[in-house]
Nucleic acid binder design. Sequence first.
DNA 1: AAGCAGGAGAGGT
DNA 2: ACCTCTCCTGCTT
Length: 333
Amino acid sequence: MGSASPGLNAAPPGCLLLPPDTVLRSGLEKVAGPEKGDWSPSPPATPTSEQALPTFYLSDFDMLYTEDGTWVAKGPEASGREEPSEEPEQCPVIDSQAPGGSLDLVPAGLALEEHSLEQVQSMVVGEVLKDIETACKLLNIAADPVDWSPSNVQKWLLWTEHQYRLPPVGTAFQELGGRELCCMSEEQFRQRSPLGGEVLHAHLDIWKSAAWMKERTSPRAIHCCASTSEDSWAHSEVDSSCSGQPIHLWQFLRELLLKPHSYGRLIRWLNKDKGIFKIEDSAQVARLWGIRKNRPAMNYDKLSRSIRQYYKKGIIRKPDISQRLVYQFVHPI
DNA sequence: AAGCAGGAGAGGT
DNA sequence: ACCTCTCCTGCTT
């Protein structure tokens, strides 16, 4: 999801550690009303609120939700103005939101804090949805895991492994379609992938919840193409994932550039007005491109060759002052 | 060593 | 036909 910085740090900076259930359930209740038991997407995902859930990361938040149910702020991170991706949005610190339902006991005087908590939670949910939307577009897969083909499942697995630095699952989930995947229990995930199964299952739960939410709020918006988040890539002249045409490399690069919070550590603008950008992590960008195109052998050497093909087409060029890993869109956005 | 430039052929759509 | 992937040689940083 958002933090694509993955690859770079063991725990991506600016990430939120959350039991998925906690955050999304509250978000779902906000959207769909508080009716209990109604939030869970199709096959009842493992009811996990009482369990010590595996924690997972959400980008762009500088807080941690620890396994004992405590929100804590992460240590301060130095960040420069030039590096928006390294400047996570600050969230208020929330001290105790025990999964055991401590909110029921909130005194009236704390109603305001509860309200703030809801705001934070709904913000987190919004970020999660945006991140899922991003991943959908970059991977060219449906937002609803139930619709995934086996190759979509593989893409999602690769992507999630990459994003959260999970141990590779290899062929453990091969030949599984999205529907089968969604029917699997956490235990089954763990059996197939003892090291990363739990976390993968938690992530899948989030995707299922998000799809369920989208279906609830806009019945025809299950696929990424129908979504309308405010900063969605609808701004793009060409929405690469919705055109039915295969995505072009320049579109992919632009899409990464348009998500600095998620990909700023991999690729960023040096001068957006002039369309000059720098690939900060060539290997990771190439890897993402490889995932996107189902080309596991993709590397920067090949990716850069493809970029150079754009020179004569007048799409991308080297800037006047040539620098390594720096390119320029001939027609800036 | 890593990146850059560009030729050439293959393969997919 | 077009786009990208892949492999390649040679050059530059």
